[in-house]
């Protein structure tokens, strides 16, 4: 599709700012929820092949805990919140105060799964509502779907819509992490926002930027 050729650095900067605002609000929400300090990295906006997209989340074989939302409304697209299993386990243990809970072969209690889904809901909800405020566009997220599975299987699903048009995806990737603890225990999550190809024009025009320059 010719649109990908028309993307310039201004557009990428705008998408970066979207990742910044969205994930910023999410990080704040998570920080309040856990009563801990959460840092956010500078968003990464990339045009990637599908295989590269998998690598961003640790490779197609990597098993992760994910929350997936389909966004409908003015700018349809897909959104993923992805955590590595040890970190997801730690996070849910902290949230429900249950040391037994584990995504890695331990007890998968109904409560823990529900907490993870709700967490995904809160984080992506704050991401999307800030995006909606910023752009004045209407976004209607679906009920979040939880999946603990291979990156390839999860992300592959989010690429279906896109794959009919292109072999590349524009991904807005923002990592959030916990500053204080050591690397193994710290939370390091990724938000992937994958707007459908037709959504980019709407995002840019909502923010007053020309696309066919």
């Amino acid at each position: 599709m010719s649109f990908f050729n028309n993307i310039n650095s201004t557009h990428l900067d705008i998408l970066k700012e979207i990742g910044n605002i969205g994930a910023g609000h999410s990080a704040t929400a998570l920080s309040k929820l856990l009563n801990r300090k959460i840092d956010m990295q500078v968003p990464n906006v990339k045009i990637v092949s599908f295989d590269e997209m998998m690598e961003l989340a640790g490779g197609p074989d990597n098993i992760v805990a994910s929350v997936f939302l389909r966004i409908e409304g003015d700018v349809p697209g897909n959104m993923f919140f992805i955590l590595q299993l040890p970190q997801a386990t730690k996070l849910i243990q902290d949230l429900i105060r249950d040391e037994e809970f584990s995504f890695e072969g331990g007890t998968l209690s109904e409560l823990g799964l529900s907490a993870f889904q709700e967490l995904g809901n809160i984080l992506s909800g704050s991401y999307l509502s800030s995006l909606s405020d910023f752009t004045q566009l209407h976004l209607y997220p679906s009920v979040p779907a939880l999946s603990i599975d291979m990156v390839g299987a999860i992300i592959g699903y989010g690429l279906i819509e896109l794959s009919q048009i292109s072999d590349y995806a524009i991904v807005i990737d923002t990592a959030i992490n916990e500053g204080e603890l050591g690397e193994t225990n710290s939370i390091n999550g990724h938000f992937f926002l994958l707007p459908d190809p037709n959504s980019f024009e709407k995002i840019f025009s909502a923010l007053g930027v020309q696309t066919d320059a």
Binding site: P60, D149, M150, V151, G152, A153, G156, I160
Partner: peptide
């Protein structure tokens, strides 16, 4: 892709694919 023995061929993370 295509392979001949003794090589093997693998693909990872099939979901709906």
């Amino acid at each position: 892709n295509v392979v001949t023995a003794p090589n093997t061929i693998r693909t990872s993370g099939l979901g709906s694919c």
